[in-house]
């Protein structure tokens, strides 16, 4: 088949929206620091009914992590597993290719689907990161109810999102279906404006 030249180029999910620089309130340090996360490896993992024990073993062997219980996120650096539904998890790798071979490794124990281009991820940190998120979710993110290693699948402005907390600075990762990234950004920019928002170059 003949090769056709095209103008198609890979483009980051946040390239048109998350412009690096200062947004919203100008005075004082930023309340929210946003880093678009590009080039991650993401995959959904759904356990085969009855093969849960075998899946847990295979995950342990590959990641050195146990499978998180509902609402849990087991992270090791940028890699890890985030619970995302009954018998379902989101597998994370810090770089494209990090999850290569996962489907074969889990054959018979889980269905694995690549989500690396399907989800767009932001890292949110800063002293007001929790207050910004609280404007959008009906989930208690206060440390008494949520914290590092916890995740919630919920919605912000009617857009389905998954949030997991990485540390207690606090730092959160937020994943959204890629085609909703622009809509979610509109909400985030408005919600963060009162606190001042610094957008860093994607990493």
């Amino acid at each position: 088949m003949a090769e056709h030249a095209t103008l198609w180029r890979p483009r980051g999910a946040w390239a048109d929206t998350a412009r690096p620089g200062r947004h919203g309130r100008r005075e004082g340090p930023p309340g929210l620091i946003v880093t678009p996360r590009e080039g991650l490896a993401l995959a959904s993992v759904t356990a085969v009914d009855g093969a849960e024990a075998r899946l847990a073993e295979a995950i342990e062997a590959r990641f050195g992590l146990s499978l998180p219980e509902p609402g849990g996120a087991h992270l090791s650096g940028e890699a890890g597993l985030v619970w995302s539904g009954p018998d379902q998890w989101l597998a994370l790798g810090g770089a494209r290719g990090d999850l290569d071979g996962l489907g074969a490794a889990l054959r018979g124990a889980a269905a694995v689907a690549d989500q690396s281009d399907g989800r767009a991820v932001l890292r949110l940190t800063g002293p007001d990161a929790r207050r910004v998120l609280e404007k959008g979710v009906a989930v208690d993110l206060h440390p008494r109810a949520f914290g590092p290693g916890r995740t919630a699948v919920t919605a912000i402005a009617h857009i389905g999102v998954q949030i997991w907390q990485r540390d207690d600075r606090p730092t959160y990762d937020l994943a959204v279906a890629r085609s909703f990234a622009g809509s979610l950004w509109t909400w985030l920019e408005a919600a963060a404006a009162e606190f001042g928002c610094e957008v860093r170059a994607s990493a």
Binding site: P70, G71, G85, A138, V139, A152, V153, T154, A155
Partner: peptide
């Protein structure tokens, strides 16, 4: 049972 108490708008 998995997510805890949620607003009925999620359902």
């Amino acid at each position: 049972p998995s997510c805890g108490e949620r607003d009925n708008g999620e359902f």
